[in-house]
């Protein structure tokens, strides 16, 4: 299980460098967000409360088993922005989250979610961050990134993107899942 992670460690210097993640706490909610600015790429991860995520899906008329399935994941609102004047792309399938035991795991993709939902007879295909996108200058997108961890769990996220044909790589240390309840009532 460690081998894929070690492989990524070897690749990191060859693929690019990590920008600094700026952690912010919302003064109204107490929830956290992280903003990273890399050459050409802006990326944000925002804690989402479990109840909010459940309400969002419930209000779309989606079935309880779908909502229960989502409840097993901690969810981050994710905004990916092309801040360059070149073509930029990303692929969620290349991203990894690393748990405190050092194990690297794949991030669940939108395609995987849709397949699961389709098996429930649900054709809803929005909300999750698209698997992959190619952005031109000025393009940006948002959606949910989902990690199968308990509330308040911590992990590192390894993300990658391709800018003008060159693959880059970054890491955010100590991302934290939202708490089960709002930190500020």
């Amino acid at each position: 299980m460690i081998k894929p992670f070690l492989g990524l460690i070897v690749l990191i210097p060859a693929l690019g460098f990590a920008g600094q993640a700026k952690e912010s706490r919302d003064p109204n909610t107490g929830l956290l967000s992280w903003k990273i600015e890399e050459p050409g790429l802006g990326i944000q991860f925002i804690q989402m409360l479990p109840d909010y995520v459940s309400a969002l899906y419930s209000s779309r008329g989606l079935p309880p088993e779908l909502i229960k399935g989502m409840a097993k994941y901690c969810v981050f609102g994710t905004i990916v922005t092309n801040e360059s004047d070149r073509q930029l792309s990303y692929r969620v399938a290349d991203w990894r989250y690393v748990t405190p035991d050092g194990t690297s795991h794949k991030v669940k993709t939108k395609t995987e979610w849709l397949k699961e939902w389709q098996s429930m007879g649900v054709n809803y295909r929005w909300s999750i961050l698209p698997d992959d996108q190619t952005f031109e200058a000025g393009d940006w997108s948002q959606g949910f990134t989902t990690i199968p961890l308990l509330p308040e769990s911590t992990f590192d996220l390894i993300y990658s993107w391709t800018l003008n044909g060159k693959k880059n790589h970054g890491e955010i240390k100590n991302l934290r899942c939202a708490p089960a309840k709002p930190p500020i009532p």
């Binding site: 919302d26 109204n28 967000s33 903003k35 925002i46 909010y52 969002l56 609102g77 905004i79 948002q142």
Partner: peptide, 19 residues
């Protein structure tokens, strides 16, 4: 949900810096 229609805003998420 209407109040929380802003996907990453409102009382249910931290305030992002929207592009």
């Amino acid at each position: 949900v209407t109040l929380g229609l802003l996907l990453f805003a409102g009382t249910a998420a931290a305030q992002p810096v929207a592009p």
